[in-house]
Amino acid sequence: MKFSHVGSSGLVVSRLAYGNWLTRGPSRNAETDQECVRAALDLGITTFDTADLYADGAAEESLGRALRGMRREGVEVLTKVFGPTGPGRNDMGLSRKHIRESIDGSLRRLGMEYVDVYQAHRYDPSTPLAETMEAFADVVHSGKAHYIGVSEWTAGQIRRGHALARELRIPLVSNQPQYSALWRVPEAEVMPVCEELGIGQFVWSPLAQGVLTGKYLPGRSRPEGSRAADANDGSEVLTPWLKDDVLERVQRLRPVADGLGLTLAQLALAWVLRHPGVSSAVLGASRPEQLADNVKALEARLDDGVVAAVEEALGPVANRDPAATESSSPTDPEWRLS
Rank of each mutant, 00 (worst) to 15 (best):
324 A>W: 05
284 G>I: 00
329 S>K: 02
303 D>P: 03
251 Q>K: 08
313 A>V: 04
311 E>G: 09
277 G>H: 13
298 L>K: 03
278 V>C: 05
266 Q>G: 13
318 A>C: 07
267 L>D: 07
327 S>W: 06
258 D>C: 10
332 D>Y: 02
288 P>W: 14
259 G>H: 05
300 A>W: 01
315 G>F: 14
249 R>N: 10
305 G>F: 06
286 S>W: 09
270 A>G: 04
300 A>I: 08
255 P>V: 00
249 R>M: 07
280 S>P: 03
263 T>L: 11
326 E>C: 08
291 L>N: 05
313 A>F: 08
251 Q>V: 04
333 P>Q: 09
303 D>R: 01
296 K>R: 15
327 S>K: 13
322 P>S: 02
256 V>K: 15
290 Q>L: 01
290 Q>I: 06
319 N>R: 05
299 E>H: 02
307 V>I: 10
253 L>P: 06
278 V>Y: 13
311 E>T: 10
251 Q>E: 12
271 W>H: 14
253 L>C: 08
275 H>C: 08
249 R>H: 11
314 L>K: 11
265 A>I: 01
301 R>N: 03
278 V>D: 09
282 V>L: 04
259 G>T: 00
249 R>T: 03
254 R>H: 12
273 L>S: 01
272 V>W: 15
326 E>P: 04
252 R>F: 02
295 V>R: 12
302 L>E: 00
308 A>R: 12
297 A>Y: 08
329 S>P: 08
312 E>W: 12
293 D>K: 11
252 R>C: 05
265 A>H: 09
288 P>D: 04
281 A>L: 07
314 L>E: 09
332 D>A: 09
312 E>Q: 15
290 Q>R: 06
288 P>N: 03
258 D>L: 09
308 A>T: 00
308 A>L: 05
303 D>S: 03
277 G>M: 09
317 V>K: 12
272 V>H: 14
277 G>N: 14
322 P>K: 01
272 V>T: 09
269 L>F: 11
293 D>H: 13
264 L>K: 08
272 V>R: 12
279 S>D: 07
266 Q>M: 14
273 L>W: 07
330 P>E: 07
315 G>R: 14
253 L>W: 05
250 V>E: 10
321 D>E: 13
291 L>I: 11
303 D>N: 05
316 P>Q: 07
296 K>Q: 14
276 P>K: 07
257 A>K: 06
292 A>V: 14
322 P>L: 01
319 N>T: 11
281 A>Y: 11
322 P>Q: 02
329 S>V: 07
327 S>Y: 04
273 L>P: 05
294 N>V: 03
289 E>H: 14
246 V>Y: 00
284 G>L: 01
247 L>P: 11
266 Q>W: 13
285 A>P: 02
